[in-house]
Design a protein around this nucleic acid. Structure first.
Lengths: 286, 286
DNA sequence: GGAGTCGATACCGTTGAGGTATGGACGACA
DNA sequence: TGTCGTCCATACCTCAACGGTATCGACTCC
């Protein structure tokens, strides 16, 4: 009755993303007629119309919109199952850590030291990613991640807070706002902010691929950027930083897939907590 | 490469649950040889051994254990996708509320009144269930639920707290502990506690199917039961209630599937919050 | 009105899912 | 120890359905 195969979901997602049977079929590596038939059969078995076909393209119905979102989640879950099983079966175990370069709030050395001081640890591999690190955890490409709340979408993940980071704005040294001691978000309304290529939908403004490009643009006065205060540890030439009074503070969290009962993940989370607690204590002493 | 079909996952879950190819095949409605081949092909494609076959039965490998858990989650996600899409496509909309009979902490009348006072509401259907209400939300059989934290597993769900309920123990009137003003958990160590048939694994002790049976057993002195303090609103003949000092309080929450962007769910959650806030205010006035 | 685009239909070959019959390994038991 | 029973694997067959090519029908745009 409702035994839908993942192939059918993959086909539907492809069509729903392209809104074009021919292109979707090409992307899937099959011809267009089998794709049309597969989608039609899917609609018939679900008893729901998913697409409105016109001779000039295709649109999603309300039910189709729902299925697009749900199918992506379900396909993520399936490929996560495969990946995690493969990793559990492969003899050489390692722990894949998803993080943004420099996005550790300066905690990473402490965390790794604390992790490796525990018994039975495995090598830690780094999966640097500017974009959706949360998706890497959900899909099983990474085991544990350092991310920011609420900037990252933590749904489907479990997490532990490691500390809050105030946000500062990076400005060119000659920027008018650099004359002030602090700014507020309203002051930045007219400024251009760079964005990562992985953003869900690209707005106006330049696209940058790494922190170097970002700071280059800022130093040139072509953009401003909201960054965590730990960016002050590695200041960039020609860039000055000012606190943003009303920016929501970013909470650095260690996150992992809900329901992961891996010993290694638990050890890493423990190490992260230890490292965060230690830093708080060190700062109190200083 | 990793395009695993849901059929293969269903087959694997069946075998992993039975640890017996023949019985699993019967349950799936197919013959044993195709099932053996399907599992073998699955292992081959994943590059991992999932089962240790002996001529006298079958055991899961470590990787098989991982896949069993992950596959259940993935299959839940797929059937949830189908169910939610069907409901989105069917013209007559309604909101399915999962709850335990009497498990509303006395809030339900207020919640329904608040919900129905909003514009554009749909009929509320009740899905009473003693067992895994959280699973009903995850699999799309219900849209929103009233459950208890931490007694229910809220992973994969979003939730809002509605209030805490202290826990009391229900005792026969002649029970020795009824002589005390309050008890602690250690006092209950030797007592028999009934359990619901949906429990993951049945221990010793009687099984009850509803609150009436439960209270009957308690009144007869055959068992004691930990219940929420709102049970005092409908006391049972021959049963007396005593607070449990160190029992973790149950937090009543309204929960819904993560990522549900349904307008009706949002309206219900809003109504539940309103109802909870109103009751707090009323009690403060009284 | 002709050309072009896009999805649906017709028809065909091949893959593979599922069936039956049987083999082979192993434990139980006399 | 030989026999029987259990349980999974293998061999072989059938047929549904997946995917491919060719073509149609509807609609848009010059």
């Amino acid at each position: 009755m409702d035994d839908i195969e993942t192939r059918e979901l993959r086909y539907f997602v492809a069509v729903a993303e392209d809104l074009h049977f021919g292109r979707a079929a090409a992307r899937l590596g099959i011809a267009q007629p089998p794709l049309s038939r597969a989608i039609r059969r899917l609609e018939h078995r679900m008893g729901v119309v998913l697409l409105e076909r016109t001779s000039r393209g295709t649109r999603l119905t309300a039910a189709g919109e729902v299925l697009l979102g749900e199918a992506r989640v379900a396909l993520d879950a399936v490929s996560a199952a495969v990946r995690r099983t493969r990793r559990a079966g492969s003899p050489q175990r390692s722990l894949v850590l998803a993080m943004k370069p420099g996005g550790d709030g300066g905690l990473l050395p402490r965390i790794l030291a604390a992790y490796e001081s525990q018994p039975d640890t495995v090598p830690v591999q780094f999966a640097f990613s500017l974009g959706e690190r949360a998706a890497m955890l959900r899909s099983g490409r990474a085991d544990v991640g350092l991310l920011h709340h609420p900037q990252n979408d933590l749904r489907g993940l479990a997490s532990e807070p490691l500390g809050v980071e105030r946000r500062v704005v990076a400005l060119a040294e000659g920027h008018p706002l650099a004359a002030r001691d602090s700014v507020c978000l309203a002051d930045l309304a007219g400024e251009t902010m760079p964005q990562w290529p992985e953003a869900a939908e690209l707005g106006p403004g330049p696209v940058v691929r790494d922190a170097g490009e970002l700071m280059q643009l800022v130093a040139l006065g072509r953009a401003v950027a909201l960054v965590g205060e730990t960016a002050l540890d590695r200041p960039h030439r020609g860039v000055t930083y000012r606190p943003v009074r009303d920016a929501p503070p970013a909470m650095l969290v260690v996150a992992w897939p809900e329901g992961s009962r891996s010993r290694q993940v638990a050890a890493f989370v423990r190490a992260a907590r230890t490292a965060a607690d230690d830093r708080v204590r060190d700062r109190a002493l200083a």
